[in-house]
Nucleic acid binder design. Structure first.
Lengths: 345, 345
DNA sequence: GCGAAGATATGAAACGTTTCATATTGACAG
DNA sequence: CTGTCAATATGAAACGTTTCATATCTTCGC
């Protein structure tokens, strides 16, 4: 349209102000400017003020690349997730971004597509940028990570290689569900598990079953039926359909699932079969995804403290507040909603 | 546990190989190595091979910070979204990350929380890293963006400031829904719109209504009722409940919504009111979120080509394949599923 | 008022690239 | 064999920081 104008604009070379300009403006040396910028307290207040003023006057912004070259560190945190379009990881990413931003760090995001090879590639790509730290949600297929680097790496939710893990205390959290269903009076219950090839699947199942068994030890008319599935909706629906096919006298009065997706699948199966929830059947999920609040009845679920997990992960890799690089488990909360109630007597 | 061992490991200083080392190993000058690495063809094949070999032998990796300092560009693309935990933005982010990775670029992610002030801050933060380009999904509250930079910026889905927009052709896509419902025979329809303060909300409503009005011009017994709401689930449920309260002879035989969330809200309202979908009421959504495939009946919806949008956005900011920085609109597909059918005669 | 010891400020060196002016090589015509 | 010109290779400079050895200023005891 206006080639001349366009040309003119794009040619306006951004002449960036450097630490040198600031030094001249403030009448000090570059070293002093650098010190002030890095909040070094050995600079006298008078000078410090002059420098700060000069920085403001000139609108000076440090060149991050130059800084990175000198210090071989960028103010960034890498994050590798299996699939950012999975709402759970998206929530996690959001919390991590927020926490990182609080400490002046930018988040680099990469997807591994649940493929260990791609995961290794992405990890390497992010490490190449020399971030302050790297946070990885491991692939479902667990493998070793042969990376060697001085950059702190932690895994979150699912362990990555041999790196320290920060995650919900799945075992304890799952036990909360067992407590809840037991307290309501359920004795004939079914547990829809996640794949036992995953640590998360194993821990949640163990947490629920062990607690339920302890609670019901020596009691009459107790039945705990476990079926294994995937974490997804379809798996929950199919398995629930089987479980609920039995006559009402012997079918479970409550179903606990290893994920909300499964639980919602079970909810739909129950509705299709004309089984009222929660009057004739209680259903509990795990993860408290947004959808859990939207289904009818609203789903009782376990809410992971993603903010806590994100905080620990970021602090751990940044070495903040003495949070060490080490396995850490965060407790979760049971959120009781309309999908669970006492069984019909 | 093993303090000595730990000490030892953490003290092993990573001595990184530089372009100098490669030059020595290959018996050439650093300039030559640099040329080879930047695929400069004025280097003779013999030398090129020697350098390539040396790079392989030494496992040399260029220092990205140093390169960035020299060239004042990092191989990164910034992405600012209102909320990464929104599945739609998460899907978009995934596609953008994939496309950027294809061209050797890392994605930096930031959330604006739908807050213009935060958005401005995040945009600035990402620009400070001197990425190759910046992609922004604007806040709901549209405002001007006073940023001035040489870095290419495009907005996606929702316009950011005065920057070029790459988005679904919402008007045309919404018209597809009108076509579909009209073709099925619906004449008494309701449209649940998004907020008319948003461009997306306005375009989708106009697209649907204009087309429906054109199709039905001059016909008998036609009624198009528009109600305005938010894009969320609750809004859809409430509005649908009102719409469906009327006697069956005058209530709409079809509801089109500006979002899947609204449509699913409407679906639940219908179920609660004992109105069968699709026999007594057709419902169509927009966005084709994952959930659209999970509800019963499965939701007819408009599927945006996020891969296309991501491709255009990345190519635009990177100046690839001659994709210019300019407004661009991508067509969408109607996905017909079980929630729409011909009205009961 | 002097000297010593801290406290504070300075500026040159270094980080690892890319670029570009210059040097070297090779090819070829005379 | 020499001179010319193009093709190719070289290495020093520059990018903007931070750091650290050195220089300068304060303070304070005597």
């Amino acid at each position: 349209m206006y080639p001349l104008l366009q040309r003119h604009i794009s040619e306006r070379r951004t002449v960036l102000t450097t630490v040198k300009d600031v030094a001249r403006q403030a009448g000090v040396s570059v070293g002093t400017v650098s010190k002030v910028l890095s909040k070094d307290l050995t600079v006298k207040v008078a000078l410090r003020d002059r420098v700060t003023q000069a920085v403001a006057d000139l609108g000076y912004k440090p060149n991050l690349a130059a800084r990175a070259l000198r210090t071989s560190k960028m103010d960034m945190v890498g994050l590798v997730v299996p699939d950012i379009s999975n709402p759970f990881f998206a929530q996690l990413a959001k919390q991590i971004e927020a926490e990182a931003a609080k400490h002046g760090h930018v988040v680099m995001l990469a997807n591994s597509d649940d493929d260990p090879a791609a995961e290794a590639r992405q990890v390497q790509t992010l490490l190449d940028q020399s971030p302050r730290g790297l946070i990885v949600v491991g692939c479902a297929s667990e493998g070793v990570s042969p990376i060697k680097t001085d950059i702190p790496v932690v895994s979150v939710d699912r362990r990555y290689g041999a790196h320290d893990l920060i995650a919900t205390h799945n075992r304890a959290a799952s036990a909360l569900v067992a407590d809840h269903l037991f307290d309501l009076g359920h004795r004939r219950v079914a547990y829809i598990s996640g794949p036992q090839t995953t640590e998360v699947g194993r821990l949640r199942q163990a947490g629920f079953c062990d607690r339920f068994n302890v609670l019901t030890a020596g009691l009459q008319g107790v039945d705990l039926h476990v079926v294994e599935g995937q974490f997804d909706y379809a798996s929950g629906e199919t398995l629930a359909r089987n479980l609920l096919g039995a006559a009402s006298a012997i079918r479970p009065t409550a179903i606990a699932a290893a994920s909300d997706q499964q639980a919602i699948g079970a909810l739909c199966a129950a509705r299709d079969l004309g089984i009222q929830v929660p009057t004739m059947l209680s259903i509990a999920g795990f993860d408290d995804i947004d959808l859990a609040r939207l289904v009818v009845p609203r789903l009782t679920s376990v809410c992971q403290r993603l903010d806590q997990i994100a905080l620990l992960a970021v602090h751990a890799v940044l070495g903040l507040n003495g949070v060490p690089l080490a396995d850490q488990f965060v407790s979760a909360d049971l959120v009781v909603r309309g999908s669970t109630a006492a069984p019909k007597t």
